[in-house]
Computed example of a mutant assay.
Amino acid sequence: MASQLHSKPQVRLDRALFKARPGESLLVIGYALSLYVLPLALFVWVANNASTGWLLLSAPLLVLAGYGLFLQAILGHEGFHFNLSANPMRSCYLGILTSSLLPGFCVTGYFVDHWQHHRFNNSAKDPDYRHFSRYRSLASRIAVSRLAATSNYLHATLRLAFGPQSEPSPLPLSAAHVQRLARCNLACQLGWLGLYTLAMVWVDGLLLGFGLTLAVAFLLSAVNAYQEHAFSAGPQQPPARSRTSRLSTWLHAGSNFHLEHHFYPAVPCWRLPRVHRQLLDSGWYADKHYLLERRFVASFKYASGRHPYRGDTVND
């Protein structure tokens, strides 16, 4: 019989870690935008001004840009956790504005599932467990899992925007507020798509660069769920994994500390490395190193079928 092992650590954190600061949030938003826009712009410049050989050598720029684009979705996640502003609605609007840079990703519909994911982590009531655990091969996880999830989030956002207001609200906001957020989300999606289209008409090479960047971001988002929740087969059912390499922290803005996020979702992701260090210093991780992945490249192995997306069968 499988069992859930880890309750929230009994460690008192500095209350300042939980406080949303607009200046910090804007700096992180600027960092994510820079990681996306600057490598993409440099790749487009190379595509327009250099030889094919230099174009191939500049391909790693698209990996950086892909991480930057994926970070926009993470900022949407932070916004709906109310971590971008002390004002919950302002935080959500900031999350919508940034995450809508990723075409097709509707964070409002996503968070309906994500809210339940936090409430029922890894149980049969967890929407993420029900969705991602059905994909057992690397090919289906990469090609299908995220595409299907993104489609579900879009349909959920459409229902929230134009369907009857649900009671009770599916989020810790009023039904009227959720409807406004969903409509804003769809408007931002259309707005960014329009700006992308205009930019691609004006800038030679942008269509190629953006298309490849979007493909990288899609692949990163597809494997991310398994990097966070897939473990080797066995009786233990850990709640989540933290990836602790410095490169992961830079590229994910701290959201790679996913176990800490599940324990403390009201702490902005860029402060989670501090939470992790405090848990290490307290000795909480002394016998729990299997919850950590210290190597950047090795973390991608969890997308393979050898590592099932875990569920807590005690609660099934």
Rank of each mutant, 00 (worst) to 15 (best):
I142T: 00
I142F: 08
A143Q: 13
A143P: 02
A143E: 14
A143R: 06
V144C: 08
V144W: 07
V144H: 09
V144T: 06
S145K: 04
S145D: 06
S145W: 05
R146Y: 15
R146T: 10
T150I: 14
N152H: 04
N152C: 03
N152T: 07
Y153A: 01
L154Q: 07
H155Q: 10
H155R: 08
H155C: 10
A156T: 13
A156K: 01
A156H: 04
A156V: 03
R159L: 14
L160N: 06
L160F: 13
L160Y: 12
F162P: 04
F162I: 13
F162V: 12
G163I: 14
S166Q: 12
S166L: 11
E167S: 05
P168G: 04
P168S: 05
P168L: 06
S169W: 08
S169A: 14
P170L: 10
P172K: 09
P172R: 05
L173K: 00
L173Y: 04
S174P: 04
A175P: 02
H177F: 00
H177A: 00
Q179E: 02
Q179C: 05
R180A: 02
R180L: 00
R180D: 02
C184N: 05
N185C: 11
N185S: 13
L186D: 02
L186V: 04
C188F: 15
Q189R: 07
L190I: 07
L190Y: 06
L190V: 09
W192I: 14
W192C: 06
W192V: 11
L193R: 15
G194F: 15
G194S: 15
Y196G: 07
Y196L: 14
Y196H: 14
L198P: 01
L198Q: 07
A199Y: 13
V201Q: 14
V201G: 05
V201A: 09
V201H: 10
W202R: 14
V203C: 13
G205H: 09
G205R: 08
L207E: 10
L208P: 03
L208V: 06
L208N: 02
L208W: 04
G211Q: 11
L214V: 14
A215P: 04
V216I: 12
V216N: 05
V216F: 12
A217G: 08
F218M: 06
F218Y: 11
L219N: 03
L219W: 14
L220W: 08
S221Y: 03
A222M: 03
V223T: 10
A225Q: 07
A225W: 05
Y226D: 01
Q227R: 15
Q227P: 01
Q227L: 15
H229T: 03
H229W: 08
A230G: 02
A230M: 03
A230V: 01
F231S: 02
S232W: 13
S232K: 13
A233H: 13
A233W: 09
A233F: 10
G234I: 01
G234L: 02
G234Q: 01
P235L: 12
P235M: 12
Q237W: 07
Q237M: 15
Q237H: 12
Q237A: 10
P239E: 03
P239K: 00
A240I: 04
A240E: 10
R241Y: 09
S242N: 09
S242T: 07
S242C: 10
R243S: 06
T244S: 14
R246H: 11
R246K: 12
L247S: 06
T249W: 11
W250P: 01
L251Y: 06
L251I: 07
H252K: 03
A253N: 09
A253L: 15
G254R: 03
